[in-house]
């Protein structure tokens, strides 16, 4: 049963759905923060806002990594071909989601938030 949890085809879409949710939060959070309480442009990229976005990015990436590892692990033990296939492709998609989170989150390190 625990095995079936990690080989379920829903994992094909969970990783990138989380990526989308993360993406919307980043963009929405940034826009709202800049509309409500923009940090001074002189501060450059070293603001609380950037730090918060960076933290969110890391936490999301770590969570995706955990999910991906679980799926990968499950795929190795799965004998049913269809389920094995789903789990393996899902773990790949989790890796893609991690790459997407880190790559899209990267500019937080170098750009001022609201200019």
């Amino acid at each position: 049963m625990r095995q079936a949890l990690w080989t379920h085809p829903i994992h094909l879409v969970v990783g990138l759905t989380l990526w989308s949710a993360w993406f919307v939060t980043m963009y929405g959070g940034l826009s709202v923060a800049c509309a409500v309480a923009p940090p001074a442009p002189e501060q450059g990229p070293l603001t609380l806002l950037n730090a918060g976005l960076a933290l969110l990015t890391l936490v999301t990436a770590a969570f995706l990594a955990w999910l991906g590892w679980k799926c990968f692990h499950a795929s190795r033990q799965e004998n049913v071909r269809a389920a094995h296939f789903c789990a393996l492709v899902s773990s790949g998609l989790y890796v893609a989601s991690i790459v997407a989170v880190l790559f899209v989150g990267m500019p937080v390190l170098g750009l001022p938030p609201c200019v």
Partner: peptide, 29 residues
């Protein structure tokens, strides 16, 4: 296929890079 399907929902603002939004937000897209 799945990756393309999802990521393509995170790019819409690249048609709007000149409407004047913060550069950081633009860079996400």
């Amino acid at each position: 296929v799945i990756t393309t399907g999802f990521i393509s929902f995170g790019l819409w603002v690249h048609h709007m890079f000149t409407v004047g939004m913060p550069q950081l937000a633009q860079t996400f897209f």
